[in-house]
C-alpha cells in the first residue's frame, strides 16, 4: 500500500445529496482520513453500506463498494473479508439499519469478531423516509408515526455490543473531526471487529439530539482517565443512564479475531482453471 495516498483519494466525484449541515459529512470525512492514515488505498478497500441516508456513503467514497439491502451490510462485509483478508473492510450504516432491521446481524457480527470496522451513523431518527422514530430515538420523541413518542426505551447499542462479546466499542461525534478520525483509526487498527457508534446529527428531522445537545452533554473519556482495557470500568460507563461518552470505551486487546481462530489467510479469488490436483481423493473417500 502506497504511503502517498491522501484522504481525498477516497472521495468519489459524486457530490453528496445529504442535507446541508448533515452529520454524515463529518462522519464520512473522518472515515476517509482514518483509512488514508492507516495506509490503505481505494483499490484495497471495500466499503459496504446499507439503506438510508447513511447507505449513500458507498456512492460518495471512492473504493470498491457495495450498497446492499436494508440491514444486511454486516454479513456482506463478513463475506468480503473472509474471501480476501488482504482487503480493508469498512461497513457503514445508520441506527435503523444496524439496530432495527439489522439488529440480529449486529449481535452475530460482534460475536464473530471478523477484523473489519463498523461505523454506525446514529442520528436517532429515520431521515430518508422523512422523520420517523428509530430504535435509538428517545422514549418521548414525537414523530409522525409515534405522536406520543415511541414509549419504549431506546436501544443502547454499546450495551448490546458489550453483551454480545464485543472486542472494541467506541463512540464518537461527527463534528469533533479530530477525535472522530482518531477513534475510527483505532477501530481500523483493532485486530477484530471495531465498532464505532457515531453521533451524526440530522439537522432536518431531529430537533432534540442536535449538535448543541451533543456538544454540551458528551463527555470525552480521554478527559476522564478512562482505561478502555478495564472491563469493569467499561461496563459501568456503558450502562450509565444519565451520561453519554465519546472515545474508546472498551477494547479487548488479547481476543483472537475470526481470521485467527479459523485460519483465514487466502485470497479466494485465485483458483485453478480446473479441479484441484488431488481432486480424485475426494471421490475415493466414497469407496
Amino acid at each position: 500500500m502506497s504511503s502517498d495516498v491522501r484522504f481525498t483519494d477516497f472521495k468519489s466525484d459524486k457530490q453528496p445529496t445529504w442535507c446541508p449541515g448533515c452529520g454524515d459529512f463529518g462522519t464520512m470525512n473522518g472515515m476517509m482520513k482514518a483509512l488514508a492514515e492507516t495506509g490503505n488505498s481505494p483499490d484495497d478497500t471495500f466499503v459496504v453500506a446499507g439503506i438510508g441516508c447513511s447507505g449513500k456513503i458507498g456512492t460518495y467514497m471512492h473504493a470498491y463498494a457495495l450498497h446492499g439491502v436494508h440491514g444486511r451490510a454486516l454479513p456482506v462485509g463478513t463475506g468480503v473479508k473472509l474471501a480476501n483478508p488482504d482487503l480493508e473492510v469498512m461497513v457503514a450504516g445508520g441506527d435503523g439499519d444496524g439496530y432495527s432491521i439489522g439488529a440480529g446481524h449486529f449481535v452475530h457480527a460482534v460475536r464473530r469478531n471478523v477484523d473489519m470496522t463498523y461505523v454506525v451513523m446514529d442520528n436517532r431518527i429515520y431521515g430518508l423516509t422523512k422523520g420517523q422514530a428509530s430504535p435509538t430515538s428517545r422514549e418521548d420523541f414525537e414523530t409522525s408515526t409515534t405522536p406520543g413518542g415511541p414509549q419504549q426505551p431506546p436501544v443502547n447499542p454499546l450495551a448490546l455490543a458489550f453483551a454480545s462479546g464485543a472486542t472494541f466499542i467506541a463512540q464518537s461525534f461527527s463534528s469533533d473531526a479530530l477525535r472522530h478520525q482518531e477513534i475510527v483509526q483505532k477501530a481500523i487498527e483493532h485486530d477484530g471487529f471495531g465498532f464505532v457508534n457515531v453521533f451524526s446529527p440530522c439537522v432536518t428531522f431531529n430537533d432534540v439530539d442536535t449538535y448543541d445537545y451533543f456538544r454540551d452533554s458528551l463527555v470525552d473519556l480521554q478527559d476522564e482517565g478512562h482505561d478502555p482495557t478495564d472491563r469493569e470500568a467499561a461496563k459501568e460507563k456503558i450502562l450509565e443512564a444519565d451520561k453519554e461518552y465519546m472515545g474508546v470505551i472498551w477494547q479487548d486487546e488479547d481476543a483472537s479475531s475470526y481470521e485467527d481462530t479459523h485460519n483465514v489467510d487466502t485470497n479466494m479469488s485465485e483458483i485453478p482453471d480446473g479441479a484441484p490436483e488431488d481432486g480424485m481423493d475426494l471421490v475415493r473417500e466414497f469407496y
Binding site: V48, P75, T78, G79, L82, H105, M268
Partner: peptide
C-alpha cells in the same frame, strides 16, 4: 438472510 449476504460479499471479493 445473512447467509446469502455473506455469499454475496465473498463473490464481490472474487471468490
Amino acid at each position: 438472510l445473512s447467509a446469502i449476504n455473506m455469499a454475496l460479499g465473498a463473490a464481490r471479493a472474487g471468490a
